[in-house]
Nucleic acid binder design. Structure first.
Lengths: 351, 351
DNA sequence: CATAGCAGTCCGGGCACCGGAGTGCTAGAA
DNA sequence: TTCTAGCACTCCGGTGCCCGGACTGCTATG
C-alpha cells in the first residue's frame, strides 16, 4: 500500500462521502455530483466542501471522472473499499429466507437438478446472472462402484461419490469375464475403498483387489479409468441462469461488449477460471472489475459463496453482474440461497 | 389456398423476381428496390416492369413494404415460397463435410458430450444459435437395468437405454433385501425385458419378475419409478450454442426483443415446443416467423434435421436464426452435421 | 478549514435540413 | 396487350447546429 493512499486516509467524512457516492451510483447508474450528494444526503457541509473531498478521493484512486465537468464514478478501488469497509452488511429478511427454502423444497431428488434449481432461483432473485461451479472431483469421497456386465468382454463401471452418482464408463477387455466376476470385484472394491477420498485411491489399491480374486489385471485399468473419469466429463459449470437480466443494465448498451460477454458465459471456461481460486473456500468472496483478470469483464463483478453437501464445501454459487451491483443485498441473497441449498442437499444425504 | 394466391400464380418472371428479392434481402438485410434488382441481376426487363411485378407480389402476400417509398422485404409467405419452390438446394462441399467429420471424431465417448460437441460445432459454423433436442425417452429401447445395493433398505437403480446410460434413481424400502436379491432381480429383468421399447414395458411385467424370485412387491415400485425417471429429469434440450452470434444480426438491435429471446433460449421449454412436432420425423423441416407460434420469435426461423443413433432417429438438431437466414446453406450444414453425428454415434453403439 | 460565487467545460437531446432511394402513375412505344 | 420512360411525390436517416443543464475547479472571503 503506497503512502498517501489506502484505507488509512479514509477519515470520517471522506469515508462517508465515498460510501455515499458508491451507494448513489449503484442506485442510479449516473455519475454523482457534489450537489446531488448534499441535496439527497445529510452531509452537514456545502457542496464546495464535498467537491474538495471528492477531488482528493479521486487523487487517491477511489473515484474517477468519466470526463471533465461530469460527476464521479467509483473505481475498482472505490468499490473495494465500499465492500470491505464502508458497506453495512445486510441480512436477508426472514420472510425472504423462508421463500427461498420453500422454493427449493419440492424440487427433484436428483442432485444436479437441485443445484440447478437453486441457480435459477438465484438468477431470478438477484436479477443478474447466477452460476454454479462444482469443486474438483478428487476432493470427493469414494462411496461405491458397480461393475455391470454387458457381454463377456464389455461392461460399464458406475462410480458413486459423496457428490452423488457421478460417472459411468464403458470398458472393453481382451479376455472373458463372467457377471459373477464383476459382482465379486465390485464387492471387494467397495469393502476396501469405501469412504476414502477419491484422490487417495491409488491404482495399486485397485490392483490388489483385482489380484485378490485372481482376475486379469486388465480390469485394474478399467476401474482406474472409471474413477479418473469422475468429473472429467463433468462440466465444471452445472448451470447458469439469468443472462437476460444483464441486458437491463445500462452498461450493456454496447453490443460488442455484450457479445463477448455472452460468449464467455456460453463457453463457461472463463467463468470457471474466475471462481476457481475461491473453490473450496469456506467464506464468501467478491471480485470487482480488473480483479477478475478478464479484459471483457472489466466493468463487471462477481460474488461467490460456497455451498455444502454434508460437511464439505462441494461447490460455489456465484452472481455475475455489473460492477455497479448492490453488493450487500446480493451477498445476503447468495448466502441465503447457498444455505438453503446446503440444507436441502444434506437432507438428501441422510437417506 | 385462396384463389388468386398461392404458388399457382408464380409464373416464370415473377417467381424469379421473388426469388431474387429474398436472396438479395438475405444477403444485405436492406429492403430491395426495383432498381437494385435490375442492376445487380440480369432480368432483361426495366425497373418499371419489376415495379409492377413487385406490386403484384405484394398484393399476393409474398412481399411487404416497411413504409412507403422503401424497397420490399419478404413476408413469411415469401420466405416459405422461396424455401419450398424457388431456392436451389445446396450441397455441402466435400471438404467442409470432411472437416465436420474430423471435428467430431476425437470427441469423448460420452453420448451427451458428443451430441453437445456437434451442437457447438453447428453453432460455430452456422453463425447462429444451434440447439439439440432429444426425442421422447419412451421411444427408446430398454437395454439394461442394474440395481445396486447400498444398505439393507436402500439402493440405486441404474437404467441403460438405447440412448446410453440414462437414469439413476434412489429407492427406499420398508423390508430388507440382500445384495444378492438385487443382483438376481437385475438379471431376471434384463433377461425378460431387454430390447423392448421402453414404453412397452408395463408394471405388470416388472411385477412378474419380482414375483418369480419371491421378492417383496415394493421392488416393483422402485423399478418402475426408475424406468419412468428415464428422461423425466433429463433435459429435453441437451445443449445450445452460439447465442452470441445472433447479436451480429441487425434484427437484434432492439434490446427488448433480444432480452425476451435470451430468456426463451435459457428457459428452453419454448425451444422444445417449437421442434416438438417434428420430433421423430425423418426429414428436415423449416419453420418461418409466425409458423413458430411464438410472438417473440416473429422474425426468426428454425431449421430442424433429425439425427440417428443406430437405426432410430433419436433427436433433432436445429438452427435458430433471423428469418433472413441463408436457408440453403444452413440446411446443408445442419444435414451434414447431423449425418456426421449419426455416424459417430453409430460407431459407438458398435462397441 | 469551510463556504459562496463565478467562469469554464462538456455532454446530449432536440430540431431543421437535405440527399437519396424508391414508389405509383400516366402516357406513349412495341 | 405488355413493357418502358419519365415525373412528381414520399419518407427515412444522416449531418450539423444549437443550447440548456450539470458539473467542476478556482478564488476570494468569513
Amino acid at each position: 500500500m503506497r503512502s498517501g493512499e489506502g484505507p488509512g486516509d479514509l477519515d470520517g467524512r471522506k469515508a462517508y462521502i465515498l460510501a455515499t457516492v458508491v451507494y448513489e451510483y449503484i442506485a442510479t447508474a449516473e455519475p454523482v455530483g457534489s450537489q446531488t450528494l448534499t441535496q439527497k444526503y445529510n452531509l452537514g457541509v456545502s457542496s464546495a466542501t464535498v467537491r474538495n473531498d471528492m477531488a482528493e478521493l479521486e487523487a487517491e484512486g477511489y473515484l474517477v471522472q468519466p470526463h471533465t465537468s461530469a460527476g464521479r464514478v467509483p473505481s475498482d478501488a472505490g468499490y473495494r473499499a465500499y465492500v470491505d469497509q464502508l458497506m453495512a452488511p445486510e441480512e436477508l429478511p426472514v420472510q425472504e429466507r423462508r421463500r427461498i427454502r420453500d422454493e427449493l423444497r419440492d424440487a427433484s431428488r436428483e442432485l444436479d437438478e437441485i443445484v440447478e434449481n437453486a441457480t435459477r432461483l438465484l438468477g431470478r432473485l438477484s436479477q443478474n446472472l447466477a452460476f454454479v461451479t462444482k469443486s474438483q472431483p478428487d476432493a470427493q469421497q469414494f462411496k461405491h462402484i458397480q461393475l455391470i456386465w454387458l457381454s463377456s468382454r464389455t461392461g460399464v463401471a458406475i462410480v458413486v461419490t459423496s457428490a452423488g452418482v457421478a460417472a459411468q464408463s464403458l470398458f472393453e477387455l481382451t479376455t472373458d469375464v463372467t457377471p459373477d466376476d464383476l459382482t465379486r470385484l465390485s464387492n471387494v472394491l467397495n469393502a476396501h475403498l469405501a469412504n476414502r477420498m477419491l484422490r487417495d485411491v491409488l491404482p495399486a489399491d485397485v490392483a490388489a483387489c483385482v489380484a485378490e480374486l485372481g482376475l486379469h489385471d486388465e480390469l485394474r485399468g478399467a476401474v482406474v479409468t472409471a474413477m479418473k473419469s469422475v468429473g472429467a466429463n463433468e462440466q465444471p459449470i452445472v448451470a447458469a441462469a439469468g443472462a437476460q437480466n444483464l441486458l437491463d443494465q445500462p452498461e450493456f448498451r454496447d453490443l460488442r461488449k455484450l457479445r463477448s460477454i455472452l460468449k464467455i458465459i456460453e463457453e463457461q471456461k472463463t467463468l470457471y477460471d474466475i471462481v476457481s481460486d475461491s473453490l473450496g473456500s469456506e467464506s464468501p468472496s467478491v471480485k470487482i472489475g480488473r480483479e477478475l483478470h478478464v479484459d471483457e469483464l472489466d466493468d463487471l463483478a462477481v460474488v461467490t459463496v460456497p455451498y455444502r453437501f454434508g460437511s464439505h464445501a462441494v461447490g460455489m454459487l456465484s452472481i455475475l453482474g455489473p460492477r455497479r451491483m448492490p453488493y450487500g443485498r446480493l451477498m445476503a441473497l447468495a448466502s441465503g440461497t447457498a444455505e438453503s441449498l446446503s440444507e436441502r442437499l444434506t437432507d438428501i444425504e441422510a437417506i
